[in-house]
């Protein structure tokens, strides 16, 4: 008996290698999150006191900024998939500007902490706060550079439904940056 069941075509977005990078990078952050939790258990009172000095409004705004940016990148990939070539650079530029807004927000937040005499050396909570958010910020800066390059490529019409691998790979990375922040925000700002 021969049957030919409908086989859904499943495809990994982007190049496979970017998934290696994303998974490994998330494992690195996972180790850091576990380290943070270990220290938090040991020094619960200190971490809780220090957490109250962080402004959750900054964290919340940054979350919205990154989610918006990720959504814009999704729209850019969708535009490429539908061959709406003119829309792609606009969406990528808007996503990149969101990334810059995140950086500015972080700079203001860091500036406030440093002006109040709070540094990574102040205690273990701030060590984690500055290190984790700093490493994440480096990812955001890298992503902004990537989005700028994509924007220039999109202006030259290099992305369409047949040429999406690079764009999808970049989008995968950018979603990872977003996802990491979604873990970081409650871990540092909200967890009681």
């Amino acid at each position: 008996m021969s049957t030919s069941p409908a086989v859904a075509t499943r495809r990994l977005p982007g190049v496979e290698g970017v998934w290696v990078f994303v998974l490994a990078d998330m494992c690195f952050f996972g180790v850091l999150f576990v380290s943070f939790m270990q220290e938090r258990i040991k020094q619960g009172a200190l971490f809780e006191t220090a957490r109250h000095t962080l402004n959750p409004d900054f964290g919340g705004i940054n979350t919205l900024i990154l989610l918006t940016s990720s959504w814009l990148v999704v729209l850019a990939v969708d535009a490429a998939n539908r061959d709406r070539i003119a829309a792609i650079p606009k969406l990528l530029l808007a996503a990149m500007l969101c990334g810059i807004a995140f950086g500015i927000s972080k700079a203001i937040e860091y500036g406030g902490k440093l002006a109040a005499g709070i540094t990574p050396m102040s205690n273990d909570f701030y060590m984690f706060y500055f290190s984790l958010t700093g490493i994440h910020l480096l990812h955001v800066i890298g992503g902004c550079v990537m989005l700028t390059v994509f924007w220039l490529k999109a202006r030259r019409g290099e992305f369409d439904s047949r040429n999406m691998k690079v764009l999808e790979s970049g989008a995968t990375y950018w979603h990872m940056v977003d996802l990491l922040w979604i873990f970081l925000f409650p871990l540092l700002y909200l967890l009681r």
């Binding site: 190049v15 290698g17 990078f21 490994a24 380290s35 990574p120 290190s131």
Partner: peptide, 29 residues
């Protein structure tokens, strides 16, 4: 293979926090 190349990028990413070693004598950094 491509995975070795991408592992190279992973390696570079893992290097950046090394910049923090002058500031910490305990903990992951």
């Amino acid at each position: 293979p491509a995975w070795v190349c991408w592992w190279g990028f992973v390696t570079v990413a893992s290097f950046f926090p090394v910049s923090l070693i002058p500031f910490f004598k305990t903990g992951p950094f």
